[in-house]
């Protein structure tokens, strides 16, 4: 019971941490509010499913299934998220603040609507079930444990790469672009390009996380990729203090742990479970408001610094 709680917290927590860490790069360092995170996540998951799924047969309505090995699908997931970020980022990044937030949100909604209605991509609302995945048993690991380790590895790799990237001179260029665009421009930096680069780079791990999500759930369906995922990641980011990579990861783990804990409570009635789910939503929302209001982590770090 406790073991499975910890394992699933680690598995989903590490996977969503990849999203939070990427969002942290976009928002805290790049100054871009991306309210369409789920679209890149979905793009990765769908790309993985399409590349690894067998060609359509019987009642399947999807047009493409390439039946390729999982690692091809995994690479395709990163590539798909990257391409989607290029396509959506190039026209929108000249917008600022809330306008950028709204356009990315709109893009995510359009993408979701296409996945839902265009049956030739992934069976429409039914989605694609039985997604192929590598079997951890082949290297002697339990299923859950294997994917937990994979999620943690992806998370650590993403965190390490982003940390290296931001500690380099390039990271200072990113900070300069966020803090004072005119100043950065005046010393000859192409700020529009930096913003697009950050946007695209941070989308790649989100795509990989999408592929991992498809492997863990073995299902991709539009209902899994709603705006709630975006909001979830934003709440996790705010919980963690929104400035640092470890903060982003801790925030996500805490939020996932909280959700898994509520889910682990056995309920006698459907109504009871439903009330618990609603209560979870309310508490998440209130936590979010409180954290943004008082920003306790910022204060703590300032105290530690002084």
């Amino acid at each position: 019971m406790i073991q499975s709680l910890i394992l699933s917290t680690l598995m989903f927590g590490a996977m969503f941490s990849v999203l939070t860490v990427s969002l942290n790069l976009q928002y805290a360092r790049g100054g871009m509010i991306n309210f369409g995170t789920v679209a890149y996540f979905a793009a990765g998951a769908y790309a993985y499913a399409i590349f690894t799924q067998e060609p359509p047969s019987g009642l399947d309505q999807y047009a493409f299934g390439f039946d390729l090995p999982w690692w091809v699908g995994f690479l395709a997931a990163g590539l798909a998220a990257m391409l989607f970020a290029l396509v959506t980022g190039w026209p929108t990044l000249r917008l600022r603040g809330e306008y950028l937030a709204l356009t990315t949100f709109a893009f995510a909604e359009v993408f979701h609507s296409i996945l839902l209605n265009e049956r030739r991509i992934g069976n429409g609302s039914v989605g694609m079930a039985n997604v192929e995945r590598p079997d951890p048993a082949s290297i002697g690991l339990d299923d859950t444990l294997g994917y937990t380790l994979a999620a943690c590895a992806l998370m650590l790799l993403t965190a390490w790469l982003f940390h290296r990237l931001l500690a380099s001179p390039y990271g200072r260029l990113v900070d300069a672009t966020r803090d004072d665009e005119i100043a950065a421009e005046s010393v000859g930096k192409d700020t529009a390009r930096v913003r697009l680069q950050i946007f695209v780079i941070s989308a790649i791990p989100i795509g990989f996380a999408g592929a991992l999500y498809a492997m863990i759930t073995t299902l991709v369906a539009p209902a899994l990729f709603t705006a709630e995922v975006t909001f979830f990641v934003w709440i996790a980011l705010a919980l963690g203090g929104e400035r640092t990579i470890p903060g982003a990861i801790l925030g996500t783990l805490a939020l996932v742990f909280f959700q898994e804990l509520v889910r682990a409570i056995p309920f006698e009635t459907v109504r009871g479970a439903q009330i618990a789910a609603s209560a979870e939503e309310v508490i998440t929302g209130i936590l979010f408001i409180l954290v943004l209001r008082w920003q306790p982590w910022d204060r703590l770090s300032r105290k530690a610094g002084s």
Binding site: F231, W234, I235, Q274, I275, A277, S278, A279, E280, E281, V282, I283, T284, G285, I286, L287, F288, I289, L292, R293
Partner: peptide, 15 residues
């Protein structure tokens, strides 16, 4: 923050 408010209201109505 208003996203958090939306969560809180939505959850209350649900419950």
């Amino acid at each position: 923050t208003s996203v958090g408010v939306a969560y809180a209201i939505g959850g209350t109505i649900d419950a």
